[in-house]
Design a binder for these strands. Structure first.
Lengths: 156, 156
DNA sequence: GTCGGTGCAAATGCTTTGCATTGAT
DNA sequence: ATCAATGCAAAGCATTTGCACCGAC
């Protein structure tokens, strides 16, 4: 089980930052902390990328196992933390049961559209929101430090 | 330790629904399920009412104990569930650590202002939000089923 | 040979549950 | 008598951690 090399981005095409391969971002973040891009971490990230929308830790573990990768629960959780602090995934808390995660890269907004039937989520930006939020806070003598909007949706 | 009677609302004053004593609402909800308004449940509700903003289960338990009430952890959790299904308190999930709760009665909005320093929260309504939410969803062929907005604030 | 990474099993911490006992109607 | 409530301790469950071993530089 060898370490997969970084696929170099084709620099003759002006590649926007947000389509930089996630593994490259991860490698950079790891290197900055003198940590290693191991096969387990690569597999975990690959599996996450293949998910659409939300996923849970044990779902991730199951998928890894069913693909024949042997990764331990401990490593999954440890890697999720690394990915989170690298800004590659984010926690999404919308029920009390369990932590959910999703890719965070390339998603500028902090509004989540969560499909109540499928559990899939999409991150969007609602520009007006910042304004509204700031006005609401200002009128109460408060300063907005951040916000999170979750909209629960179904197919119309 | 005897059962505290309902304090009757002064019916000569037109009391708006939302200031109906919470214990009366609780009693009604319990009675509807043939459950009992016990001293423990009364104490738990009273203690919750005395809190401002968010609280955690073990905080509630500590407060009860320090006031000399002997209530078990199990009863606290069981009562929190009852209060939640009676619509008197609501779960507020804003970090992964623990469940937070707060009074839900009289709070029509589903926007939470959470003070990042004190952890206290206030529920407010932002009327425009529903409109914005619906427009965003409609433009994607989705139907909004509900939403939750958390704004993290500090004193300006 | 020093560090970090991994897997396993044990530990943690919040929450729930089984059970025997108690109290209300 | 019946039916629900309580306290306690044990169980559950997601997540974390301690430790021994392994591999890269």
């Amino acid at each position: 089980m060898s370490l997969e090399p970084i696929k170099p981005t084709d620099s003759s095409i002006a590649a926007p930052e947000f389509i930089e391969p996630l593994c490259a971002i991860f490698r950079r973040a790891l290197k900055a902390d003198r940590l290693k891009y191991t096969p387990e971490r690569a597999q975990i990230l690959d599996t996450i990328i293949a998910f659409e929308g939300l996923f849970e830790a044990d779902q991730l573990l199951d998928t890894l196992k069913s693909e024949g990768h042997s990764v331990s629960k401990a490593t999954v959780y440890r890697t999720l933390k690394l990915l989170e602090s690298a800004g590659i995934i984010q926690h999404v808390l919308f029920d009390r049961e369990q932590s959910h995660y999703q890719l965070a890269i390339g998603q500028t907004g902090n509004t989540l559209l969560i499909d109540v039937n499928t559990g899939k989520a999409e991150t969007i930006t609602i520009p007006e929101l910042i304004d509204i939020r700031n006005k609401v806070c200002a009128s109460r003598g408060l300063k907005a430090e951040g916000h999170k909007l979750h909209i629960f949706v179904s197919k119309a």
